[in-house]
Design a binder for these strands. Structure first.
Lengths: 127, 127
DNA sequence: CGGTATCCGTGGCGATACTG
DNA sequence: CAGTATCGCCACGGATACCG
């Protein structure tokens, strides 16, 4: 990765780079197109695969599978397989995944302002 | 957009959708590959175009221009043109852009944990 | 100096078909 | 039910050349 270049660049100190790595990691982990939506539903409890497909209109099998896999690898959700016939798979949010809540709240607060602005564009500033 | 589908879906209430819109907007605004880096540098003061290029090794002209444009359209940074010869352009962070700080801090905190975990879980670090 | 215009490869992502 | 496999489009982004 290009982080090595950053390290040798005198314009960057260790703190900057460290910060960048962490923030990047966070954006990577939750920046996927469907991830927030998935995490939302799992916040309320366990969900099955096709249940999620129904709850998230527009997502393809491929993407749902892929994003679930990534979320699992990041330890944010857990995949529980029940060896029955027919097979049953449930996805649940891990305690770790629940630690994301503050970020979502942060972004929510900011998003409210952001949306207001882009909606008005040239209008005078709010309150 | 597929938000209309969400609205007609009984599984979603207005609050959910509203929340999703805001959080999506935030991720869109700062999720670009170079945007965090750009915002970082502008936090410390005004920067010129080629100055940013030097400070961000690996970014192409096209991408830098593009991301700067998007940040400007989102009102996070301002583009100041000085009609001199040779021409001079400075980018500065707006007050609005500075409101992002809490989010970055939030993500930083979370990113520290996230990175620690992914570092432990698989010894083979692909970064 | 600070860009824009153009070409072009890569891969993200959807659609479809198939499997245990 | 819960996926995997495969094809194909096209947007993202890099490289290069040109412009005010």
């Amino acid at each position: 990765m290009f982080l090595d270049e950053l390290r040798t660049d005198p314009a960057y100190n260790e703190e900057d780079i460290d910060c960048y790595i962490h923030v990047s990691a966070t954006i990577q982990a939750i920046g996927g197109r469907w991830k927030m939506l998935i995490l939302w539903h799992l916040e309320e409890g366990a969900r099955r695969y096709n249940e999620l497909r129904r709850l998230i209109p527009g997502v393809s099998q491929k993407m749902l599978t892929q994003q679930l896999k990534e979320l699992e690898q990041d330890g944010l959700i857990e995949r529980k397989v029940y060896p029955e016939t027919p097979p049953r798979v449930e996805y649940v949010m891990t305690d770790y995944g629940k630690t994301l809540e503050p970020i979502f709240n942060c972004m929510y607060d900011w998003g409210v302002i952001h949306r207001k602005r882009s909606g008005q564009q040239s209008a005078a500033e709010t309150d």
